[in-house]
Design a binder for these strands. Structure first.
Lengths: 211, 211
DNA sequence: TAGATTGTTAATCGATTAACAATC
DNA sequence: TAGATTGTTAATCGATTAACAATC
């Protein structure tokens, strides 16, 4: 019973389901009920069943869910079985950390080139990823079937880069610059706003100290 | 009219308000109405007024809000006027990127030491931050009035580090390991789950391609 | 079969949005 | 003063939770 529109709240929980199911499968757990999963994950069992049923009925009454099957379903829903080609723009500290980040290995997410405007970075190689001059960005995207652009530039450059990659046909952006990009209607974005996250942490820190 | 409990939804919007107000102040904007701010930020004007009034009445009927004053109030609410001492655990790619990240300069957030278990890292210096053996972590926290621990270790080590820093009295954790830490009641956490964020991006990418 | 647990509808709760009196 | 815009209460909307018939 595929719903037309999955709410952002549900989408944000999907990776967490996938993580717990992956861990459980590795531990050799064969089946799980929504009740048991709710206790492990700190969610409500009804909510878990509702979430799963946005995408289809994966369970069996009286039994629960098969862990392996459910994990595979989640991987499929999340698009982890597909292969994606990404370029990184901004080979600074964060950009290099992203390239070197090991967490991508499992998925079909591949960073195939990086771009920077710093002459010293251009021509270098970060963990197998070549760094090109950002002036070549648009041309490279057009010629290499790129799905995703990762923006890890300073704030001030981010919108301009977003415009460039959208002009080259990019529909999906992973944005690490702490700025709200203005995007075309059909372009999706996922933000990692480090300084916003720190601000939230400082708020919570202050609040908890006041108690 | 300070509410006892500010909802997570409101808290997550505070850094965004702060960002827009900071930008506007830099541009020389003196006053702003909730309506104008709502148009700039893509939020509802009622929501903005509700959010602000969780912390007090900062506006003036018929006029709006003074940008400078409001920005200062936001900085104060977020705890940016306070000074915080943090240690980083895990001086890998992400850990080093965090230390080098320029976005902290403004705030009173200071990383004063780093810890790792890799012998090659220990004793090195990252942008002025010394890397110590993780075996000294607890002792260091006890002796140096640390407010915040940043966990940037592999998943498998994160819980153990969390336990260690909590035992040393830490009440606030910035967690970059993609794992849900089990924390004591009075400890707050802010997560940056890169691989969850990527999974959400891949989900959106897949969904938007299907249209 | 009896017990367990799903899938789904209904009830509740909280967050967002609208409305408007207060007032600068 | 008249117009504008807040602060706040009320209405709406959507997300979470509860309930339960269906069924393995």
């Amino acid at each position: 019973m595929l719903k037309k529109d999955i709410s952002e709240a549900v989408i944000k929980r999907l990776p967490k389901y996938y993580r717990y199911l992956t861990d459980m499968e590795k531990l050799g757990v064969l089946k799980v009920s929504s009740k048991e999963l709710s206790e492990r994950m700190g969610l409500n069992a009804s909510q878990i069943r509702q979430d799963f049923n946005c995408f289809g009925g994966f369970g069996q009454q009286g039994y629960g869910y098969n862990v392996k099957t459910l994990r595979e379903q989640m991987a499929n829903i999340l698009g982890l079985l597909n292969s994606y080609r990404a370029v990184l723009v901004g080979a600074g500290n964060i950009g290099r950390a992203i390239i070197n980040y090991a967490g991508f290995k499992e998925s079909g997410f591949n960073i195939i080139a990086a771009f920077d405007m710093n002459e010293e970075m251009i021509g270098s190689n970060i963990n197998g990823v070549e760094v090109y001059n950002v002036s070549q960005l648009q041309d490279y995207i057009l010629k290499n079937q790129i799905d995703i652009a990762i923006i890890a530039t300073p704030k001030a450059k981010a919108q301009q880069i977003a415009d460039t990659v959208m002009d080259a046909g990019i529909k999906s952006i992973w944005n690490f610059a702490t700025v709200d990009l203005k995007l075309k209607e059909d372009v999706c974005v996922e933000n990692v706003h480090l300084s916003d996250s720190l601000n939230v942490l400082l708020y919570k820190t202050k609040s908890s100290l006041q108690k």
